[in-house]
């Protein structure tokens, strides 16, 4: 089982690196959305500092959705997904490997880019550290929850907008706890509570989401 997990992850990572151009797209998207806010709201530092956690997190949320959309698409189109369904290995494990590989190439780079964005929005250092921490716990959570929606819409031609409609409401707790932690950190307050909450959500998603993704895939591919 572990072998299958590793093989699947290696394959997905390899595929991702063969299409290097596509790797940068979600990141660019993330960056651009954040850039729009000073332009659209105001370049005033006090205001930017105040809205920064929310802006960066909402941008991360949208970028996650945007990049997730193609998670199963090529596998669905070339039939690899059907082979995964037929394989004797548990589908939920294979799916978890795919989601993890996807997070490594899309979520992790966002983590690296976020401090820069924090500086652009004049966030204090404490808050940037908290932002990193929440993104480290939160982005895998976004990938896991989002993958359920992707699995449900994989067979549909115009799944993109629909995916957003299905998944956005489920992202709300992550958004609330993460931005709250960053805001609290900026004010110099402890953030352990929010972080524990996010971490417990991540554990919950790690255990339950692969099962839901597998079930959804079986339904939409059949």
């Amino acid at each position: 089982m572990l072998q299958a997990f590793n093989a699947m992850m290696k394959r997905d990572l390899l595929l991702a690196f063969r299409h290097r151009g596509e790797l940068a797209n979600p990141l660019l998207f993330f960056f651009m959305i954040v850039t729009l806010f000073p332009l659209g709201v105001s370049p005033e530092v006090v205001l930017l500092r105040k809205i920064a956690p929310g802006v960066i997190w909402i941008a991360a949320l949208l970028a996650a959705l945007f990049s997730l959309e193609s998670l199963f698409r090529s596998d669905f189109e070339d039939g690899a997904l059907e082979q995964m369904l037929l394989s004797p290995q548990p589908l939920s494990v294979l799916v978890l490997a795919k989601v993890l590989a996807h997070w490594l190439v899309s979520g992790l780079p966002m983590l690296l880019l976020a401090p820069l964005l924090g500086l652009l929005l004049a966030m204090p250092e404490r808050a940037i550290a908290a932002l990193e921490l929440t993104l480290a716990i939160g982005t895998p959570l976004l990938s896991l929850i989002g993958a359920i929606g992707v699995a449900l819409t994989v067979g549909l031609r115009r799944g993109g907008v629909l995916l957003t409609l299905l998944i956005m409401p489920l992202y709300i707790p992550v958004l609330i706890f993460a931005t709250n932690a960053v805001t609290a950190a900026a004010a110099g307050m402890p953030i352990a509570g929010q972080i524990y909450f996010l971490a417990s959500l991540l554990v919950l998603a790690l255990t339950l989401a692969p099962l839901a993704i597998a079930a959804a895939l079986r339904i939409s591919v059949s």
Binding site: L152, P169, L170, I172, F177, A212, I219
Partner: peptide, 21 residues
């Protein structure tokens, strides 16, 4: 069936959403 999966995912999430909000 697909809707059913979504509803079940939602019902796990509703308490979380409710309390977080």
């Amino acid at each position: 069936r697909a809707g059913g999966v979504l509803i079940l995912v939602g019902v796990v999430n509703i308490p979380i959403i409710h309390y977080s909000v």
